[in-house]
C-alpha cells in the first residue's frame, strides 16, 4: 500500500511536476465547469428540476452567508459556494475506486486555506480600508497585536490541518481496512467518509465565512439589502 502522505508526480510539464491531486482537481474543475455551463444555459422563470436544485443550492449558500455575516451575500457567494462545492466533491472522490481525494493532500488544503486568508485580507481592507483593517489587529489593545497576527496564521493553519486530517485519515483507514479485510468490509467506513466529507466541507465553508465576516466588520450596509436582489 502506498503511503498516503507521499506525493509522487504523475508527469511533468516542463519543470512543473503534475501530481495526482492536481489532475483530479482538473477533472473536478472540468466536470463542475461543464455541468454549470450546461445547467445554466437555459435558465427559465419557471424552473425545471435541475434549475430548482441549483437555485436551492445558491439560496442555501446565500442564507448561510447572510445568517453568519449579517450582510448582502452577493460579493461572497462565489468564493464561499465554490469552496463548499469543491471541498464536498473532492472529499467524495474517495468513493471512486482508484481516485484519491485532492483534499487528502496537504497542498490542496493549504491552497484553499491560503485563498481564504487572502480573501479575508482583501475583503477586510475593502470593507474597513487599509488603516481600519490593520487597526483590527490592535483590538481590544495594542498588546494583542502579536497574538492577533499569530491568530491569523494559526486559524489558517487549523483550516488546513482540520480538513487534511479528517479526509486523509478516512482514506488511510479505508485503505488499511481494505488491505486487511474483504471487498465489502470498508463500505460502512466509506459511508462514514461521505458524512465526514460533507461535514468538513460545511465546516470549511462556514469558517471561511466567519473569518471573512469578522474581517469585513460592521461598516458595510446592513441587511436592508438582504431582501433586495443579490448581485452575483
Amino acid at each position: 500500500m502506498e503511503n498516503p502522505l507521499s506525493l509522487e508526480p504523475l508527469f511533468h510539464i516542463g519543470p512543473v511536476a503534475i501530481s495526482a491531486p492536481v489532475v483530479v482537481t482538473w477533472g473536478i474543475m472540468a466536470g463542475l465547469g461543464l455541468f454549470a455551463f450546461l445547467a445554466t444555459r437555459r435558465l427559465k422563470m419557471l424552473p425545471g428540476k435541475t434549475q430548482t436544485i441549483l437555485e436551492l443550492f445558491v439560496s442555501v449558500i446565500d442564507d448561510q452567508i447572510r445568517d453568519t455575516m449579517q450582510r448582502d451575500p452577493g460579493p461572497f457567494r462565489s468564493l464561499i459556494g465554490t469552496i463548499f462545492g469543491f471541498v464536498l466533491i473532492a472529499n467524495w472522490c474517495a468513493l471512486i475506486p482508484g481516485i484519491e481525494p485532492p483534499t487528502a493532500h496537504l497542498e490542496t488544503d493549504a491552497a484553499l486555506a491560503v485563498m481564504v486568508l487572502v480573501a479575508t485580507i482583501y475583503y477586510g481592507i475593502k470593507g474597513r480600508g487599509l488603516k481600519g483593517y490593520l487597526a483590527t489587529f490592535a483590538e481590544p489593545s495594542w498588546v494583542m497585536i502579536p497574538l492577533n497576527i499569530v491568530e491569523q496564521i494559526t486559524r489558517t493553519f487549523s483550516l488546513v490541518v482540520r480538513l487534511f486530517g479528517n479526509v486523509m485519515s478516512g482514506v488511510f483507514v479505508v485503505g488499511i481496512v481494505l488491505s486487511l479485510a474483504g471487498l465489502f468490509v470498508p463500505i460502512p467506513l466509506m459511508a462514514l467518509d461521505l458524512l465526514t466529507g460533507a461535514v468538513q466541507a460545511y465546516i470549511f465553508a462556514v469558517l471561511a465565512t466567519v473569518f471573512i465576516g469578522a474581517a469585513v466588520g460592521d461598516d458595510l450596509p446592513e441587511p436592508s439589502q438582504q431582501t433586495e436582489a443579490s448581485k452575483p
Partner: peptide, 9 residues
C-alpha cells in the same frame, strides 16, 4: 453557475 442562477433568482 452563481452569477446566472443568482441572476434568475
Amino acid at each position: 453557475l452563481f452569477r446566472p442562477v443568482a441572476g434568475i433568482i
